[in-house]
């Protein structure tokens, strides 16, 4: 019954608020629920940093970025929403704080690319999420460089995380592709909302 009416051209501002809040919570829950297996590997990985990519790919640039901002703001004031129950200012002032702040740009970039595609399919989504990851590194690596006082060294050591992050780019694209097929016209990019 609810499916009949929900989602379809709901002009109410409350719907916007709800999507932002629920997606912030979605990214938090990705951190609480560990153990998603990617590509048949035996090691479960935490999908949380695929969350901002998904936020951009599903909600679009504006609302995707808004949900990430909300998540980070609530983390900063002390809610343990990051994986491992991390909370407060500490995650932001730590060496990888830039990668957290980079999530905002990440969601924005993914959203902007996906919104421009008429029907977001896997290649577009792969390109978009890869660009989103690059945007994250664009903020994260210089921040780390500030810590170590040496930018090239920061870049080198960030390479450690690249394989895992690449796997998450693939995972996020696959998930978003299936979702866009399952819910045509409901997500970012796949249909322009009526003015």
């Amino acid at each position: 019954m609810v499916c009949d009416v929900s989602g379809s051209r709901n002009p109410l501002p409350a719907a916007d608020l709800a999507r932002t809040v629920v997606f912030a919570a979605f990214i938090a829950v990705l951190g609480i629920f560990p153990g998603v297996y990617v590509g048949g590997s035996g090691v479960p990985i935490v999908l949380q940093n695929a969350g901002p990519l998904l936020a951009g790919a599903v909600l679009g640039a504006r609302r995707g970025a808004a949900s990430v901002v909300l998540l980070l703001a609530l983390t900063a004031i002390g809610l343990p929403l990051l994986s491992g129950g991390r909370a407060g200012i500490a995650p932001f002032v730590g060496p990888s704080g830039g990668f957290l702040l980079g999530w905002i740009l990440s969601a924005l970039v993914v959203g902007l690319i996906v919104e421009r595609a008429k029907r977001p399919r896997l290649p577009v989504l792969l390109a978009a999420t890869a660009a989103g990851l690059a945007a994250d590194y664009l903020i994260g690596v210089p921040f780390l460089g500030l810590y170590t006082g040496d930018l090239p060294a920061a870049a080198t050591q960030s390479l450690v995380f690249l394989p895992g992050d690449a796997a998450k780019v693939v995972a996020a694209s696959l998930i978003a592709a299936v979702l866009h097929r399952a819910l045509p016209g409901r997500l970012a990019g796949s249909a322009k909302r009526a003015p």
Binding site: V2, S6, N10, L17, A18, V22, I175, L179
Partner: peptide
């Protein structure tokens, strides 16, 4: 994710 989005829609209606 599908159920997350449905939850968001229902929450949006409830808030409205």
């Amino acid at each position: 994710l599908v159920r997350t989005l449905r939850h968001a829609d229902e929450l949006g209606e409830a808030l409205a």
